[in-house]
Simulated scan of single mutants.
Amino acid sequence: MKLVYVFDAYCGWSHGFSGTLRELVSRHPGVPVDVVSGGLFTGQRRVPMSRFGHIEEANGAISRLTGAKFGPAYRRLAAEGSFVMDSEAAARGVAALRQTAPDRAVELALALQQAFYADGHSLSDPETYRQVAETAGLDAEAVLASFTSPATQDAAEADFRRTAELGVTAFPTLLALVGSRTVPLAQGHATADEVDRRLSHLGVTATS
Results as ranks from 00 to 15, higher is better:
53 G>Y: 01
158 A>H: 03
88 E>R: 15
8 D>N: 03
71 G>E: 04
95 A>T: 04
89 A>D: 08
76 R>C: 00
208 S>D: 15
162 R>M: 08
118 A>G: 11
115 A>K: 05
29 P>E: 04
2 K>E: 15
108 L>V: 12
121 H>F: 02
38 G>Y: 06
175 L>G: 10
193 D>M: 02
190 A>I: 06
152 T>R: 08
84 V>K: 11
138 L>A: 05
50 S>Q: 08
204 V>R: 14
54 H>L: 02
93 G>C: 07
112 L>K: 06
89 A>I: 03
141 E>D: 15
160 F>H: 14
96 A>L: 03
123 L>S: 11
11 C>I: 06
25 V>M: 09
192 A>I: 04
47 V>P: 03
173 T>L: 11
166 L>M: 03
158 A>M: 02
84 V>E: 13
185 L>Q: 11
113 Q>I: 07
112 L>Q: 15
139 D>R: 08
30 G>M: 13
139 D>C: 08
127 E>T: 07
51 R>P: 00
208 S>L: 04
40 L>P: 07
24 L>H: 05
186 A>E: 05
118 A>C: 04
51 R>D: 12
25 V>A: 14
182 T>M: 12
151 A>F: 04
159 D>R: 05
193 D>S: 14
160 F>D: 11
159 D>W: 09
155 A>F: 10
149 S>E: 10
9 A>M: 08
136 A>R: 12
165 E>H: 05
99 Q>Y: 00
72 P>I: 03
74 Y>L: 01
189 H>V: 10
97 L>Q: 02
179 G>C: 09
50 S>F: 02
131 Q>D: 14
154 D>F: 00
11 C>Y: 06
